[in-house]
Design a protein around this nucleic acid. Structure first.
Lengths: 145, 145
DNA sequence: GCTTGACCTTGCCACCATGGCAAGGTTGAG
DNA sequence: CTCAACCTTGCCATGGTGGCAAGGTCAAGC
């Protein structure tokens, strides 16, 4: 099977299949005499595994770990779970950060009249964001001259 | 004022100050005879504005729009609000995507015993992710053997 | 005046995951 | 034999940031 078929069956682009090979995520497949990459069903399964892990947001490094565990008959499911939990934590951290941004942004949007007048709380608060972060004290009082 | 002071006062790194200049986000500042960038308080204010917008996750392109509005005395706050609302929508889209990943991942984690046994639902579902996505129809039914 | 250290300059490489393009080789069908 | 559809490699781009290197500048101490 050539790369286009393997890519289509696994749900990846040709590009990414080559990329995953180049970064060592997958073993280089066999080559035809002309140098074409030749994929087996096992290869396709592994690529599909990668594609699915990517849709869950796992990084290349994490997928590398998952692939090792996948191929290890003596693995403990504890190890797999640990990788997943680390990733879950990362997702939650990102969500937390997005929530922080979202909250601040919503506050600012609520204060902006959104009319024809140039006055806008959003621009004002971007000048001095501390108005939206009460916990943070002003750091340069000498500029209040 | 040299770049290090401007960067420190605005909350950016020297690197990013130069970067924002190189991508045209800010006007090139004056230069000393030796070629050192010279920043005014106005420059620092603008850099601080950028720094604050970045902590809210605005992209360079969006900040470019915000800076134009900031400098335009005839702006309508409606326009500013529109930029902010677009960004808010992007944040919500990202959160939505993270939530999707998180939900799937949590389901899988819950099904994994996390013991010494090699059997693991996480690896299983990464082979055939459709088990976790009931809304998505199976695309390769012949492999359900 | 000279040295030294702290600053400045530009430019390149790296991340991460992905897409695009280009120049060239291969294969199979008509 | 030709043509289209495939394959190859390699480079550039995204976005925002950091790092490093090689070179110039400046001010302070001696």
């Amino acid at each position: 099977m050539n790369i286009s078929d393997a890519a289509r069956l696994s749900g990846l682009s040709n590009k990414m299949v080559r990329h995953y090979e180049s970064v060592g995520l997958i073993n280089p497949p066999a080559r035809s005499q002309a140098g074409y990459r030749q994929y087996s069903q096992n290869n396709v399964d592994e690529l599909a595994f990668i594609a699915h892990a990517r849709t869950l947001g796992f990084s290349i490094a994490q997928i590398s770990d998952l692939l090792s565990l996948r191929h290890d008959p003596h693995r403990a499911s504890r190890e797999v779970k640990a990788v997943a939990q680390r990733h879950l934590q990362e997702l939650e951290d990102k969500m937390q950060e997005l929530r922080r941004m979202k909250t601040l942004l919503q506050d600012m949007i609520a204060k902006c009249p959104g009319d024809d007048d140039p006055h806008c709380a959003i621009l004002q608060e971007l000048e001095v964001p501390d108005t939206a972060v009460p916990g943070k004290s002003v750091s340069d009082p000498e500029r209040t001259s």
